[in-house]
Amino acid sequence: MVKNLLFVCATGIATSTAVTEKVMEFLKEKGVTNVNYSQTNVASVRSNSDDADLIVSTTKIPYELDIPVINGLALITGVGEEKVLNSIYDKLTEGE
């Protein structure tokens, strides 16, 4: 089943692209190819998250969502990065 991954950052100008590339590269290396992704800014999360299975965000999402959210901060700093990448992998491959 194809999973949808949504990357969220504050304005979409600096962090989202960098984080997206890092995660998608990792998933490719792990052989996970059935993932679609999109990027959005935090103001548009609610309207853009309908079909998302997982959100990776580098900013606080100021309301509750039914979709799991993973904090992407470690992907920027590189500190604790493996752990976050692995939890993204685990979430996406859950139940397969």
Partner: peptide
């Protein structure tokens, strides 16, 4: 640019 910076943050 941010990706380049990210390369040295750790």
């Amino acid at each position: 640019i941010l990706q380049k910076l990210m390369g040295i943050l750790n």
